[in-house]
Design a protein around this nucleic acid. Structure first.
Lengths: 160, 160
DNA sequence: CCTACATCATAAGCATCTTATATAAATTTG
DNA sequence: CAAATTTATATAAGATGCTTATGATGTAGG
């Protein structure tokens, strides 16, 4: 058993990981519960986003890694999405066992629609912030995006 | 039907709500999937956090609003949490119908444990950011926290 | 009181996850 | 190259946690 202490970090910068996690968790509890029209699960939306922005079709196995759920869960999810016309299964010319999942135009529309829903809810709240607060968030977006990329990279390597 | 356009916002600041939502969604997809030891649902953790930091016991009805799920869902969740010793039901002296939910020390420990898990995963990634990126995130935390408060406030008013 | 409402609990059903196992294609190996 | 192993996906059975509908009980107002 090992104990991590925040003080082990290089302390010549001012980002307290404890405060970061607290703020993010508080924000997420609000953000995740934003009401939406379509009732789609978190995993469903995440898969559609991964397919929409991930550059082309993906195997079930790849999705299993990116979404951190079991392989049967992905198979079942893709079956539901295919039934609803949001993705399509196609063969993988380089491997007869594999299946390549393609997102359809309807699938892309769903993802955009959810994104737009959230923007509609966020915009009036953002408008109540001070200009400095808005600038502070804008300045942090590249770092947040980079953190998410780093996180996905380390998850990929952590397969056992 | 009304159409929201980002350009309707005051545009003398540089926070693009579209980019904000995109970055947050990307970050959340990674953050939510961080592995943890205890297998507790998102709502479970959220209720424990709400009770731990919300200043005292709450009614089921209050939790229904803060968590944005149905009342029976909260009743069932609290039943599970009470069975596991994480919360306790008590009477409300001012209303014979109501039930006041108290978090136990074990419940607080669970919340802290999850928080610590996430810090352990975040810290090595944060360490890979540039000092400027770390400062940028640190500078945005108050604004993120304020946004979450504004969001919870507007959700409370939006009850129908 | 008696009706209306508020609070919580229960029941039944559904969606989505899990683990265990099956099937089939690819790869390794003797 | 055939048998054994591994990899990719599918299926089955069961658990969890949500939903809507309804019930039981306490409160409030005429």
């Amino acid at each position: 058993m090992y104990i991590w202490r925040v003080n082990d970090l290089p302390d010549d910068d001012d980002l307290d990981v404890d405060a970061f996690a607290t703020a993010i968790e508080s924000f997420n509890r609000f953000y995740i519960r934003l009401p939406t029209l379509e009732k789609l699960s978190f995993t469903t939306l995440s898969v559609l986003d991964t397919l929409a922005f991930g550059g082309g079709p993906m195997r079930l196995t790849d999705l299993t890694r990116t979404e951190q759920v079991s392989q049967p869960a992905i198979t079942q999810l893709i079956t539901r999405l295919e039934r609803d016309g949001l993705v399509e299964r196609g063969p993988d010319p380089s491997d007869g066992r594999a299946v390549l999942i393609h997102i359809t135009e309807a699938g892309r529309r769903i993802g955009r629609s959810r994104h737009d829903d959230r923007m509609r809810h966020l915009a009036p709240l953002v408008a109540q912030l001070t200009p400095e607060q808005r600038r502070a968030i804008a300045g942090a977006l590249p770092a947040l995006t980079r953190l998410a990329e780093l996180g996905r990279g380390s998850a990929k390597k952590a397969e056992s």
